[in-house]
Simulated assay, not measured.
Amino acid sequence: MEISFIRHGPSCCKSHQKCNVTQFKKWIQNYDQMGMFKDTVVSLDTIRKCREAALMITSPPVRTVQSARTILPGMEKKMMESNMFREAELPIFEHIPSFIRLKPHTWAFFFRLLWMVLYKGKVETYRQAVRRAQKASEILSEYARIHGKVVFVGHGIFNRMVAKELKKQGWKGEYPPCRHHFYCTTYVQGERGSDEYVPPSLNRQR
């Protein structure tokens, strides 16, 4: 059995300009609503894993669905969407003085740290996201049991959380999964012996 994790392609929403927290909130909304930057190279290993898989699962955002279709155009019959696999949302504390300006990815890192120390804002807590990741890992394991090989096209943080749960269940693979867009990390379990196992890092094309 194999479960492969792929992070979606890069979003069309890019900015290197500093912004205040109100502007960052709008940036996040745009990031979630916009699709994928299409001129991106997909690694051959990623394409091969997707071709071999009997099922490809994505979260609902446009960028993940477009990413799956980019990897395997015309193969919608083997794809399914599930909100269970959505990214862990960022809480945004809006009462930060407007004169404080940071780059979007710095804001994201800051709020992700707050989220992990139990500040939730209006989104699910870290503990709730962990429970969702546990459930998602069980679903992926069941799909792998039925289909043999499955692929999950998802998001950086939630991919990592689900992979951690799989490792607890005895799945073998490199942790954390690769955060590069369109790169693949595979976890294996079952008849394949440890002496036959090839670490995903050896298969990655960088």
Rank of each mutant, 00 (worst) to 15 (best):
E2R: 02
I3D: 08
I3F: 08
S4Y: 02
K14M: 09
S15Y: 04
H16F: 15
Q17F: 14
C19T: 15
K25D: 13
I28Y: 04
Q33N: 12
G35K: 07
G35N: 02
T40R: 05
T40A: 08
V41W: 11
T46A: 07
K49L: 09
C50R: 04
R51T: 14
A53L: 07
A54S: 10
P60F: 10
P60C: 00
P60V: 07
V62A: 14
T64G: 02
T64A: 06
S67D: 00
A68C: 04
T70G: 15
T70K: 15
L72P: 05
G74N: 08
K78G: 05
K78F: 06
E81P: 06
N83V: 15
M84Q: 11
M84V: 09
R86F: 12
E87K: 06
A88L: 10
A88Y: 03
E89F: 09
L90I: 01
L90H: 07
P91T: 02
P97W: 03
S98Q: 12
I100D: 09
R101F: 10
R101A: 09
W107M: 08
F109D: 13
W115Y: 07
V117A: 02
L118D: 15
Y119G: 01
Y126A: 10
A129D: 10
V130W: 12
R132F: 07
Q134V: 13
A136R: 04
S137A: 00
E138P: 11
E138M: 14
I139W: 05
L140H: 00
S141R: 02
E142G: 15
Y143K: 08
G148R: 03
G154W: 08
F158E: 04
F158V: 01
V162N: 01
V162E: 03
K164S: 11
G170C: 04
W171H: 03
K172M: 05
G173V: 08
Y175E: 06
Y175N: 06
C178Y: 00
R179A: 14
H181M: 09
Y183G: 06
C184M: 06
T185I: 07
T186P: 00
V188C: 06
Q189K: 11
Q189M: 12
Q189D: 14
E191K: 10
R192P: 11
E196I: 01
Y197I: 01
V198T: 05
L202C: 12
N203A: 11
R204T: 02
